[in-house]
Design a binder for these strands. Structure first.
Lengths: 264, 264
DNA sequence: CGCTTCATTGACGACGTTCAAGACATGTGG
DNA sequence: CCACATGTCTTGAACGTCGTCAATGAAGCG
């Protein structure tokens, strides 16, 4: 897996809940100013200078969606592009008979839409409550044309996403159900890591329902459930409620994931 | 599927071979001059002006590989980036136990490598005989930084590849063996289409062995072979040698592929 | 001619899907 | 407080697709 980890989101308030630390609580936006923006250092605007931020602040507006709501349908006109500020969203495709495959998971700082494309090629759906920082596509395209700070960052982000997509293709094409689940749990753990932590946390929450995990992993929800139960039975993980996961052995979980050594 | 069709390559000479028209013969490079380059209008340099071509001609050199040869190993240093000028190459990942998944198929005009990345994240292998137009990474990075014509084209190409990768994820995650084969045959047909043709040709050659197809489609070579035989038995296609395919019913093949309506 | 490479075909079994029932938690109204 | 409905998750049993292992066939080459 590529290791462009982004904490799925910052934690807010105290960290006690029956001795469990559940992450992925969503911080509220405290300001509309780019300077205070929680994703400022990672988003498409990461390398903007002050003048560019002025332009952006002028053309941007926030928009929120509740968990489960569609953000875009495939084929929709896309008058806007956007940065995901808060929450988790999915990019997915559905076949006529209803089979569905998630083809991307959007986390804070990820970019939605593309300059030069009028219609959405995929469905985008809010998985949790979501806030977007939207820009009208036309003026944004002009900005991309004129600001290397934006276009270079966008290229970099797109290349990273392409690498991640290719890693996921290995999982979808070749990994067993067990390996897919283990890989996914490790990925979520890694992305739940806070900046001040040294390692992935042992306790965290899954951001997806079993059904959404199945869509992401190319499995059925029954298989997902069975494999999670199996990992629990073998004392590799332990469950806290429906979504809470505690990893009892990182080593064994890594082995189950069948992962290659990393490179960088 | 996205429809950024590139003919896998131009045809050379006469078109008779027992009444079959086999495409994918590879034209030889007739010149080292960018103006005469067969991929000039589609590659990363598609929008370069004369000055930029002068710079490129100065830093470029051609390099060829025979079918089967490795071009890059995962983890290798990448002193160069390159455009694929002639032939077909694959991007693939291999797990420790040997399971392999092709995660991209590189055709003429496709770009290899990325600015700002020192090591190859995946294996790249010549599928047929291949010729690359190579550029030293450092000077190329400078060119990308300074020429919007190059960086914008590169962004566009990368976004297209990301869309294709996501289409492929649907195939790997959800399609049956039969659907994968039918989808693949249709894709090859479409890419074999010459500029002057109105539709995909009915007769063409598969650019991959059964094993390579299996790697690409997330199947075993036996399953690939069985499904091709089944399509033959049902008179949907007909075989001419090992690689030659004749589509007897586009309609039925499309139905077998389980494809959504296109959007654009 | 044997050797190699690539493709086809068969028999069998494993893994994951499908269908179905039940558990558990939460919320609503009587 | 209970009865009941709803959404999410778990578990079981039967089935089917595709992978594995193995034998055979076809084409190209020294």
């Amino acid at each position: 897996m590529q290791t462009n980890a982004v904490p799925i989101c910052d934690i807010e308030g105290k960290l006690t809940d029956n001795d469990l630390v559940f992450r992925m609580n969503v911080p509220s936006l405290r300001s509309q100013k780019c300077v205070d923006c929680p994703i400022r250092h990672r988003a498409v605007c990461a390398r903007c200078d002050e003048d560019e931020f002025l332009l952006l602040e002028d053309m941007k507006y926030y928009r929120s969606y509740e968990a489960g709501q569609p953000i875009l349908w495939r084929g929709d006109e896309m008058p806007n592009v956007a940065s995901l500020v808060r929450g988790v969203a999915s990019i997915s495709q559905t076949m006529e008979d209803g089979r569905r495959q998630m083809v991307g998971l959007l986390l804070p700082s990820d970019f939605i839409g593309r300059p030069g494309r009028e219609r959405a090629p995929f469905d985008v759906t809010a998985v949790t409550d979501v806030t977007l920082c939207c820009f009208k596509r036309r003026p944004f395209e002009t900005l991309v044309d004129e600001s290397p700070n934006v276009s270079k960052r966008l290229l970099e982000m797109t290349l990273d996403e392409l690498d991640s997509a290719r890693d996921w293709m290995l999982l979808l094409g070749r990994k067993t159900a067990r390996e897919r689940i283990a890989t996914f749990i490790r990925m979520v753990a890694q992305r739940s890591q806070l900046p001040e932590e040294e390692d992935s946390p042992n306790i965290f929450e899954l951001p997806l329902t079993r059904e959404a995990m199945a869509d992401y992993l190319g499995l059925t929800l029954e298989t997902v459930s069975r494999q999670i139960s199996a990992l629990k039975r073998e004392n590799i993980i332990c469950l806290h409620g429906k979504r809470g996961i505690e990893v009892l052995s990182q080593t064994r979980l890594a082995a189950e994931a069948g992962e290659d050594a990393f490179i960088d």
